[in-house]
């Protein structure tokens, strides 16, 4: 089996060389400077409680997670990861949204053609648009389910009352984000769904007409509404929701982490 032996020898040599190269790279000054102490990608990382703490403590993730969490909080069956998935969907929507922004002009004469071109002319354009749309629907769903999960666990009780309020605001902002994106394709579905939706805003007592006027930039859906919804959708509402998300995540930690088991 000379052939087989030769292959094994080659494999071994390749493996050896790869390990050597990886060690060189991981030991280089540049990589050393990028990775903070305790990073699992650092050369010579060993799995110890100290290093496990360092992974979180010396990491940008320290702002999201504490070094240690309650054991029951890790169970998937407790949270179903709904809050985390909502946040992840938000990130995914931001990424796909930025991609879409490259190919979209929020004017009445170009919007529809641009969306159409996404499906035909742009590489992965159709896929990214689909991901953005279904992801948005999913996010409304996960945020809502997250709220239901929190309610059924009674996790809004002291000291977490205010974080529940922040959460309700986040749900509202999620709905508004989704709704403002609905108009952008500028097709019949978008136009009339937004017409129906904003008609409801007109029933707000006292300020009804004003609210509707501010939303639509006029008395009915026009080209100006498209620009208004676009700015709301890509700039204003994401800006607001990120602030509220920061408060939300921060309060989760400050209020004692995830709530106790039932």
């Amino acid at each position: 089996m000379a052939n087989g032996d030769g292959r094994t020898g080659l494999l071994e040599r390749v493996q050896e060389k790869t390990t050597e190269l990886m060690d060189r790279v991981r030991g280089s000054q540049f990589v050393e400077s990028v990775l903070r102490p305790g990073s699992p990608f650092k050369k010579g990382y060993t799995d110890s409680p100290r290093n496990r703490s360092y992974v979180i403590m010396n990491n940008v993730l320290y702002h999201l997670h504490p070094v240690k969490v309650k054991r029951h909080g890790v169970k998937l069956s407790y949270t179903l990861c709904l809050g985390g998935l909502s946040f992840f969907l938000f990130i995914l929507l931001t990424i796909t949204g930025i991609f879409l922004m490259f190919y979209f002009a929020p004017t009445a004469d170009r919007a529809y053609a641009d969306v159409q071109a996404l499906s035909t002319d742009v590489a992965f354009g159709s896929l990214v648009r689909n991901m953005h749309r279904w992801g948005a629907h999913l996010m409304v769903l996960t945020v809502f389910l997250h709220m239901s999960r929190v309610f059924y666990h009674g996790a809004y009780k002291p000291p977490r009352e205010f974080n529940w309020v922040v959460g309700v605001i986040l749900l509202l902002l999620t709905l508004l984000l989704s709704f403002s994106g609905y108009l952008l394709p500028w097709d019949q579905l978008a136009l009339w769904a937004v017409t129906v939706g904003t008609n409801m805003a007109g029933f707000v007592p006292v300020f009804g007409t004003q609210v509707k006027f501010a939303l639509l930039a006029g008395v009915e859906v026009t080209a100006a509404t498209l620009l208004r919804f676009y700015v709301l959708h890509v700039l204003f509402l994401p800006f607001i929701i990120v602030i509220f998300m920061a408060v939300h995540f921060w309060r989760v930690r400050k209020d004692g982490g995830i709530s106790g088991p039932l």
Partner: peptide, 13 residues
């Protein structure tokens, strides 16, 4: 009763 976030929670996530 606590566990390290890394790897127990991070892997789940």
């Amino acid at each position: 009763d606590k566990v390290n976030t890394w790897p127990h929670l991070m892997l789940n996530e």
